[in-house]
Design a protein around this nucleic acid. Structure first.
Lengths: 339, 339
DNA sequence: CCTTGCAGGGTTAACGTTAATCTAATAATT
DNA sequence: AATTATTAGATTAACGTTAACCCTGCAAGG
């Protein structure tokens, strides 16, 4: 069927072992032999059977990535950060997508373990018994990217969710807003929980009563932002600002506001979260929280690689800073409205 | 180290083979034995070494996907279509990203072949000698998704690039436009070539002279649309409509027009291509070509699976139809402008 | 001249799983 | 009762690669 080491060995007259070593660039072989073998292999169209190699070696040069929501460009940007560094270090990336289903997360974890990947980066759900059990018992190095998991410490690279949403809210309050609609993200992920808490804490600290009507739970997709605003307007809720779980939601929200003849930011100010690449091109351009997505991926893979290189290395959480970006979906002056 | 079939065999008193068969759900075993073994395996935390299994079986239950540009949500939507059907058929998806670099495409092809995947779906570049050689010699079933490759026939699932861009252009011409700016996509991919030809052909058929100034070559990213319009405006080019390689470019283009105080669609009409999910939420919502992305993925994987099931099956190109979607970045009346 | 060292390469035994083949015991058929 | 099928499971031999160890011959050193 396909060309094997054996075939190259027969053709060149060297042993299988020598061929194997030549193809892996073993220094102990003469330059001549190495070249002969490599050229013959190339000519015969040899492709290493990595299953066999892997079985023998016990570990591969692959990093498994379990991403949360493929429809959100956020993760694509993080993955880029991972990919580049991984490639330079000689590792390959394998990508699987859970779409936030915990069963898939558990399944994919097993898949990667079964594939003997060198390490795993995960965008996990917050609570799931099966997953948590896996995280507590697994021996492959792993890190959570941009999220944390209930009861598992030291394995997360985070980005100040609580503080950032607190700051966003405080910034809106500073400008005079008292009724700030918050569109919540998907349940069971830490970002949603932390950001919501940041929003609530800011209200509390400013003596603004929590109003359950102003908290709308969604799945964090673009259409959810759209639907949430329509729902709120239909119920005649009064609010002067909208803080969104993420930029996609904000995009949907702005669309709905605009269709209902509210001007953003003059009638209502809108704040996003993530700073997607497209957010600067939205109309109006979106004020948001800049999450260092590329750096997040880069630091995640660098940290993971360190653990792969040294299994003794103790694990530790890492937290990245964000910054608020003010664009045209908010004003840079006090919000004044006749009420 | 990790739990093996052998360990379970010792614990339960059955042979390794019986354990293996029980875990794979072999019908020839008594229900009792099967349950005992599975429960013991579960308890001991057994995870199959898929490298060993793969080596023995010679082929895996994985489909390799080589995608072109991870920053474009287009592919995420296609991959969803692939993923769902693949999962139902018991296959798993492995995703790699070339960012349009031919070397990576070739490298990843070898990777997947080396991994003994069951089949490969590729979003390929149009011309690359190394890649083309691989496509001509490879024995793993494969299909190109949404693109075709120079000199390789019968392996593409397409979506009427030429005709769609022709129709877009004709539609603009019908409304009175004579100077239509076309923002071209990345070189060396078939979509760019076919769409540009559709645009040119429509001009030709309507007796409109080709104007090289109205053709701007880009990489098809959002910032390219933005930069192209700024460039064109700086050069004081006159045009009344913009046809874009894709929706991202259109988004950037609209942004630039708007920042330069052109109203879309009243002063200038803009047409996209792809119909991304976000395009309906843009401001103004984008007129575009609806490419059936989910169906594209679904049909691609279905076709591929058929070939995996029956290697004798002859290969054939497939072409999907698109339709024009008219939203608010174009008017539904004749374009009239004092010139 | 004999040892030592080393470059260059060969031998052999795994790695963990699965498939083909075989065996024993029970059930069904005549 | 004797034969044949059937069921449930055991034995054994791969799958292709790699790593540990072994071998040979030549050059340098004493």
């Amino acid at each position: 069927m396909s060309v094997l080491l054996k075939d190259i060995a027969e053709k060149t007259g060297f042993s299988i072992n020598t061929v194997s070593r030549a193809l892996r660039g073993d220094k102990k072989l003469s330059e001549n032999t190495r070249r002969t073998i490599c050229e013959t292999a190339e000519m015969m169209g040899y492709v290493r059977n990595s299953a066999a190699a892997l079985m023998r070696k016990g570990t591969s040069n692959e990093i498994g990535i379990i991403s949360g929501d493929s429809s959100n460009p956020f993760f694509a940007e993080v993955v880029r950060g991972i990919e580049e560094t991984a490639k330079q270090a000689g590792y390959r990336i394998l990508l699987l997508n859970t779409d936030e289903f915990p069963e898939r997360e558990a399944d994919y974890m097993k898949t990667f373990v079964s594939m003997k990947v060198a390490g795993i980066l995960i965008v996990p759900v917050f609570h799931d018994d099966v997953c948590q059990k896996i995280y507590r018992t697994i021996s492959v190095p792993y890190y959570f990217v941009g999220r944390h998991v209930e009861g598992i410490t030291g394995h997360s690279i985070l980005h100040s969710d609580f503080q950032s949403q607190y700051d966003v809210t405080q910034s809106l309050i500073n400008k005079g807003h008292r009724r700030i609609l918050y569109i919540v993200g998907p349940e069971n992920i830490s970002n949603t929980i932390d950001r919501l808490n940041g929003y609530l804490k800011a209200l509390d600290n400013n003596g603004i009563p929590r109003d359950p009507d102003l908290i709308i739970r969604t799945n964090g997709h673009i259409e959810d932002g759209f639907a949430s605003i329509n729902w709120a307007l239909n119920r005649s809720l009064s609010f002067t600002a909208v803080a969104c779980f993420n930029d996609l939601v904000a995009m949907g929200a702005i669309k709905a506001l605009s269709e209902n003849n509210y001007r953003v930011p003059d009638d209502i100010e809108v704040f996003g979260f993530d700073n997607l690449y497209i957010s600067q091109f939205m109309q109006p351009s979106l004020s948001t929280v800049d999450v260092p997505k590329f750096a997040l991926g880069k630091i995640a893979i660098e940290t993971l690689l360190r653990h792969i290189g040294n299994p003794q290395l103790p694990y530790d959480d890492i937290n990245l800073n964000t910054r608020l970006i003010f664009r045209k979906s908010t004003n840079d002056r006090l919000f004044l409205k006749e009420e």
